[in-house]
Amino acid sequence: MLQYLIRRGFQSVGIVLALLAVIFFAINVLGDPISLMLPGDAPQEQVLALRKAYGYDRPLYVRFVDFYSHFLRGDFGVSIRYQRPVESLVLQRLGNTAILASAGICLSLLGIPLGLLAARRPGKAIDRIVTVASFASISTPEFWIGLMLILIVAVKWGWLPTSGFAGPTELKYLILPAITLALNPIGRYAQITRAAVVEEIGRQYVTTAHSKGLSERTILWVHVMKNAAITIVTLGGHQLAGLMNGSTVIESVFGWPGLGLLIIQGIQARDLPVVAASIFVAALFVILINFTVDFMYVRLDPRVKYA
């Protein structure tokens, strides 16, 4: 158990290091960092000055070591647009994203009872409705749902603000983005739960439980769910990582000042340090979630021994 955790921890560290390499490679080898910061028609002397100021005139391997040592120490440089250290900017935005993501996670858990409902009567009307609805929810572009919600709930009915952010305590700004973020995972959770429960219901211990005369509720909640939970947590947990993808675009639809909006605005403003740092931190977040999920998997399934 502990051994597995240590190995998995080392693996995560390796992933983080590789992630940094990918970011460095993308910026410095695939593209030219200076052209990512300046518009295409910038004069030559400005390009040279900037190249020198940011140290891009040094050899690649020096920059590589420099990049690693700075990023691993949490020093992401200074934002070109905001003229302040990137790490404080990113940390502040990360908090906002975390608020949105937690609200989204809570709402998306609704998919589990939906999946259960479908799995109890496979092939019946309720199952077909849930199945098609869940496919519809994963086939919908998230930002489009957001736009539709803005159009109907905010503009037509005027119940909630269209977009914006007024501190973490103003819940009315949170409702629409959170619903938008959750819709896609609700569908996935419903599918995962349905598949896991249908599979468990077919097993022999369920027949045994039936013949013992246990009530349907006991069988479903005590016997079936306990086993199905393993699948749901593993598959569902990795879906959480997808929330990070969703929040990037949803934040820019609703003007929610999180990490995703920072990335998009950074790209538009050619603010390279901000883009690199926020993509790194967002990916770090995902790696952390995956690690936690794997850890829970080991805890949940006593049959699995990771030596």
Partner: peptide
């Protein structure tokens, strides 16, 4: 494994940003 560990959209954004 490495590719699977990265959040896909962020990776795509990064590469498109550069390319």
């Amino acid at each position: 494994d490495l590719f699977m560990a990265f959040p896909a959209l962020l990776l795509l954004l990064m590469v498109l940003y550069v390319l």
